[in-house]
């Protein structure tokens, strides 16, 4: 396994991380269950206790690992295992949570060393349930929240997404890839 071929999905409980990984993974995703030693297929409506894991196969035997962190805030222990190296971070924020700015602050700071080296992309979920704040509001929040951060991409993509919608998740990941190299996929 090449450790650098991974994308980490993070964000608060219920933001849609598990849904997003399921939407694009080539294999049924594996969620680490707290009780069982075996891999259990994640079912809808469950909170992820430890991690989600999905794979994108690239045809030439190489693959990209998709990891989802647990939403609960106190498990930064795991994130250290997850975030050594990688392609980037997808931060999903839930628009129905009481204080999304606080969530944004928490997760960007929890990953502050990581996002100094790799790009971050913000996906705002559940805007169908609660349209405000909108992406412009989030851009303002980001300016406040990130004052003491050194982000590789200080002007990150901020998209409304539905974690269950494949097109939305594809756009998040593609925006992440273009943030690494805007020239990707053009003629050499």
């Amino acid at each position: 396994m090449r450790e650098d071929n991974k994308i980490v999905f993070t964000g608060p409980v219920g933001a849609g991380k598990t849904s997003a990984i399921s939407a694009i993974s080539d294999v049924p995703i594996i969620s680490t269950d707290a009780k069982a030693s075996d891999m259990t297929i994640n079912r809808k409506g469950h909170t992820t206790v430890a991690m989600d894991y999905g794979i994108l196969h690239l045809g030439d035997k190489s693959k990209v690992h998709l990891y989802g962190t647990p939403g609960q805030e106190r498990f930064d222990f795991m994130w250290d295992i997850l975030t050594s190296g990688g392609l980037g971070l997808i931060l999903m924020l839930d628009n129905t949570r009481p204080n999304p700015q606080k969530d944004m602050h928490f997760f960007l700071h929890a990953f502050k060393d990581y996002i100094a080296d790799v790009p971050v992309v913000l996906g705002i979920s559940k805007t169908d349930l609660n349209p405000r704040p909108n992406t412009a509001d989030y851009a303002k929040m980001l300016a406040e929240v990130s004052q003491d951060l050194h982000m590789l991409n200080p002007v990150p993509p901020i998209f409304e997404v539905d974690g269950r919608n494949k097109e939305d998740v594809k756009n998040l990941v593609m925006a992440l890839l273009f943030s690494i190299d805007p020239g990707l996929g053009m003629l050499p």
């Binding site: 994108l56 690239l58 392609l87 594809k170 593609m174 190299d181 990707l184």
Partner: peptide, 15 residues
């Protein structure tokens, strides 16, 4: 790395 990222991009776009 670009080659790898390019393949990944093509894969995602085609999902």
């Amino acid at each position: 790395k670009r080659g790898f990222l390019g393949r990944l991009l093509a894969k995602i776009a085609g999902l």
